[in-house]
Simulated assay, not measured.
Amino acid sequence: MKINRDSDTVELNGPPQFEYGQKVRSRKTVRNDGTFPGKDIGDILVKKGDEGYVTSIGTFLQQFYIYGVDFVANGYRVGMKARELEGMTPIDGADMGC
């Protein structure tokens, strides 16, 4: 049985793209898929362009890093993949083109 994955890339082969406390911006609008308590399925949790801070780093399907991002302005902490985020601050002083 073949497992269907989002892509052929296994992010866990390298270090996380973002660090704890790093400021990030959402690249997409995120709606509740039923896993966010207190909100209806389909409710918008994060809008494209919302800014937040990485508060946790976990994994999903032994393939992706999932970043818990605290979006302070709306009071939500949402799990997102790296491709759904862009860094707002450099890691270790490196220039990230921001």
Rank of each mutant, 00 (worst) to 15 (best):
V72S: 12
D50M: 12
I44M: 06
V46Y: 05
F64M: 12
Y67K: 03
F64W: 14
R77Q: 14
L61D: 13
D43G: 01
F60C: 08
Q63A: 11
Y53M: 14
M80H: 02
F60I: 06
V72C: 05
A73N: 11
T59F: 00
G52V: 09
K47W: 12
K81Q: 09
I41P: 05
G38C: 02
Q63Y: 09
G68Q: 13
V54D: 07
G68W: 04
D70Q: 06
T55N: 11
G58F: 01
Y65M: 03
V46L: 04
T59D: 09
K39H: 13
V69M: 05
I66S: 07
F64L: 13
V72G: 00
G38K: 04
I57C: 00
R83P: 00
F60Q: 13
Q62I: 06
I41A: 10
Y65D: 02
P37W: 07
F36D: 05
G38I: 06
Y76D: 13
I66H: 11
I57M: 03
T55I: 15
T35R: 14
K47S: 12
V46G: 04
Y65G: 00
S56G: 15
L61I: 11
E84V: 02
G49T: 08
M80Q: 10
N74D: 03
I44G: 06
Q63W: 02
D40F: 09
K39F: 13
K81E: 10
G75W: 05
Q63H: 07
G52W: 06
K81C: 00
V72M: 09
R77F: 02
G79L: 06
I57G: 03
Y76Q: 12
D50V: 02
T55R: 15
I44C: 00
S56R: 14
P37M: 01
D43M: 00
G52T: 05
Q63R: 12
V78K: 00
G79T: 01
G79P: 10
F36T: 11
V72F: 10
I44W: 05
F71Y: 13
I44V: 15
A73R: 11
V54H: 08
V78G: 00
D50E: 12
Y53W: 11
D43S: 13
D70W: 11
G58K: 07
P37Q: 11
I44P: 06
E84H: 08
V69H: 04
E51V: 13
E84Y: 07
M80P: 03
T35W: 06
G49K: 07
E51T: 14
R77G: 09
G75P: 01
V46R: 02
L61W: 03
I66T: 15
D50Y: 04
V78E: 02
I44A: 03
T55H: 07
E51W: 00
F64V: 08
G49M: 05
F71V: 09
I41E: 15
Y67N: 04
S56Q: 13
K47H: 15
F60V: 11
G75F: 02
G49S: 06
G68T: 10
A82Q: 07
Y67A: 04
R83L: 08
G68Y: 04
D50T: 02
V72T: 14
Y67E: 04
E84F: 03
Y76R: 11
V54K: 03
E51Y: 02
I41M: 13
G79H: 10
F71R: 08
D70F: 11
P37S: 08
Q63P: 00
F71K: 08
